[in-house]
Design a binder for these strands. Structure first.
Lengths: 115, 115
DNA sequence: TTGTAATATCACTATACAATGATATATATG
DNA sequence: CATATATATCATTGTATAGTGATATTACAA
């Protein structure tokens, strides 16, 4: 994806799912599912380093999956929409049936061009 | 992700969404949403190269998002579950509201550690 | 069997991107 | 103002992985 030009609809959708496709970001989103949290609360709850959490939060916010609200020297983050939680829930449902397949999926680690 | 050990639940879920997080794979899934297709039909419909499509299909199949059925020298692929289409549809809904945010999200291209 | 079409795998390259440590910015408090 | 705390950005590195072209495999046909 060169991304210097406009994004196609497919690229947009891929980017949305990619926002959900990282364990650290999922960890943040799962935490936020229980309610809004400040960055430091998120750091404590996820175990991510502060810069790493901040970067992932910036990505999630820029992508519209969470929104942020400054309050004093804290910044509170929350899921931007109930349907984000819906995506997580539906993903869990699908996962319940295909978990074994994904578990055994080693291709993802060797790259799409690999064996 | 080192992946030599067992995958955590978060890693599993991330892998599921990552399967949905690539334009080429989404293109394949959208095509399959209109019904089962052989590899060559998928190649024709998506414009992907044959090896590239085959690799993505193998990944999607191993991850449980599609299933394959050989018939002669053709192999027919189909969505493995209605909820996979559900994820795509829900993603579209969310996208409808956050599209502008994702469109402007340049962070994803510069890496989580970048500005 | 020889050839041809359909699909899968291989070897390689280039790039996207997650993580880290150091540092900058901003808001408070004494 | 000076200091501390909360958050964001910078610069860098390592790795995952998407894409390609060549080749292997499998099934069918003549």
């Amino acid at each position: 994806m060169l991304m210097t030009a406009a994004l196609t609809s497919l690229e947009l959708k891929a980017k949305l799912f990619r926002g959900l496709g990282d364990p650290s970001r999922l960890s943040i989103l799962e935490t936020l599912r229980r309610g809004p949290k400040t960055v430091s609360e998120i750091v404590a709850s996820t175990g991510l380093s502060q810069p790493n959490a901040s970067n992932h939060l910036a990505c999630l916010r820029d992508c519209g999956l969470v929104r942020s609200e400054p309050s004093g020297r804290y910044v509170s983050y929350a899921l931007s929409d109930d349907r984000v939680a819906g995506l997580l829930a539906l993903g869990e449902e699908v996962l319940a049936d295909v978990a074994r397949g994904i578990y055994e999926c080693t291709r993802v680690d060797r790259g799409a061009g690999a064996a």
